[in-house]
Amino acid sequence: MDSAKFSAEIETHLREILPSLVETRRDLHRHPEIGFKEVRTAAIVANRLREMGLEVTEGIGGTGVVGTLRAGTGNRAIGFRADMDALAMNEATGLPHASTIPDMMHGCGHDGHTTMLLGAAEVLARNPAFSGTIHFIFQPAEEGLGGAPAMMRDGLFERFPVDAVYGLHNKPNLPEGSFNVTIGAMLAAADTFTVTFGGQGGHGGSGAYMSVDPTMAAAQFVTNLQAIVGRNISPFDQGVISVGYIGGGNYDAPNVIPSRVVIRGTVRSFSPATRDLLERRLNEVANAASSAFNTTLEVNYERLFPSLHNLPEATNKIVSALRARFGESRVDDKMVPVTGAEDFAYMLEEASGCFFFIGAGTGPTLHSDHYDFNDNLIADGVRYWVTIAQEELAA
């Protein structure tokens, strides 16, 4: 079939289904589900894929869904991944389609990611402008719970082998409808630490000198943490250490020195060497603070997600295809790396491929209680997936 005619048919179909895609996105937004509890969302995805005629497998890595679409005689297979989970937070947008579930909100746009990939599956099922196999991967629990490795432990790539796998995430405050990528390290490795200082509590007024005060060790630890990045990391490298929780004592007993203080936080880095250094120095700083104030010490340092690296060959190929489809000015292949994290990094450790941001324009940032996915992105998100399918699996 003539490629121009094929593209026109795809565009016609996309315009026809766009209103229903917007409603799907808003329905998902009204009914958010957090990681590994995406039961309703996964059921909607599976049912829609079956209605399109795809082969559907459910329950991968918990609530993950894979829909498989085959066309032509090509023997290559690719994976398209979207995340489905929401965040454990309350919404403050006041929109008609705002969350109806207390303490849950689609504050990162996964409702939009799921919708765009469903739209691509529908368009490609009706207009199979490719030759080969596409596995549409709908992943649970991206928000810190490790849904990607859970699917992989459940045999994702053994059951659905791919030559390459691709991802897409919206990003506010990048030009609306732009496509943004970096070759090499694009998103940071994410680690979590929990440090517990133990001592001997006592009266904060008359008995302070008889206590072993863990708040002193905690205060020194938190202050000295920031010197690690400033004095141990090259200014040409990047690292972040942030404390997100400090707990100890009783709010209603400010005159009591606690016997235990817990500090939790996050560590971000791009290179394996920097990751190793940050973990080692955090332990050393904790031990120094504990020794200085004679407390007990427990350190739990948990490595969560690796840094996401886009492979040059796969990335350059998709950059060229997107520029041909959308124009040179809408595709930025030199985006500044982001210290956010993505468990899609695990998938890129197993297969070729790359991960793009689609610009969402100005507005509240991701994880804000005022954030809402920009529905203007849905059509271009579908076009992104179709463009990759046509590039990777040329008919």
Rank of each mutant, 00 (worst) to 15 (best):
P172D: 12
T182E: 12
S178H: 05
G146E: 06
S178R: 04
E122C: 08
K171M: 15
D154Y: 08
M116V: 15
P149V: 02
P128G: 11
L124D: 12
T182S: 15
G112S: 11
H113T: 04
F130S: 01
M116S: 06
P172K: 10
G132E: 03
R126T: 14
R126A: 15
S178K: 04
N180L: 02
V165E: 07
L118R: 10
H113L: 13
F138I: 03
S131N: 08
N173S: 15
P175L: 09
G109W: 04
E142D: 10
G119V: 11
G177S: 13
N127S: 00
N173Y: 00
P149G: 04
E122A: 15
G132V: 01
A121R: 09
T114R: 05
T115G: 13
P175V: 11
V162N: 07
M116W: 08
P172L: 13
E142C: 07
E143H: 12
D163H: 13
A120E: 08
I134P: 11
G147M: 08
L168I: 08
F179D: 04
T115I: 12
G177Y: 12
P149Y: 03
G112A: 14
R159C: 01
T114E: 07
G146Q: 06
F160C: 11
N170A: 14
A150H: 09
V165R: 05
S178M: 08
S131Y: 07
R153S: 14
Q139R: 01
L118N: 09
E142K: 07
G119F: 08
V162W: 00
G177W: 11
L117K: 08
R153M: 13
V165Q: 04
L124W: 05
H169T: 02
L174T: 02
E176C: 15
G144I: 11
M152E: 11
K171D: 01
D111I: 11
G177D: 13
P175I: 06
P140S: 12
N170T: 09
A148L: 01
A164W: 00
N127R: 14
G167S: 11
N173P: 01
A129V: 10
P172F: 13
S178D: 05
V162M: 10
R126F: 04
F138G: 05
A150W: 07
A129D: 12
D111P: 10
D154V: 12
F157T: 03
F160H: 14
H169S: 02
D154N: 07
T133M: 03
G147Q: 06
N127P: 00
G112K: 09
A141C: 04
N127F: 03
A164S: 15
E176A: 15
G167I: 10
K171C: 14
G132A: 02
M116Q: 15
H135Q: 08
N127A: 00
T114H: 05
V181Q: 03
G144A: 10
I183Q: 13
G177F: 12
F160N: 11
I183V: 15
G155A: 02
R159S: 14
V181N: 03
G109K: 07
E158N: 05
A164Q: 09
R153C: 03
R126K: 15
H110I: 09
T182Y: 00
S131Q: 08
D111M: 13
H135S: 07
I137T: 01
M152K: 00
P161N: 06
L118D: 11
G146Y: 06
P128H: 07
L117R: 06
G119E: 08
L156Y: 06
E158M: 00
I137E: 02
D154G: 07
F136Y: 14
V123Y: 00
F130Y: 10
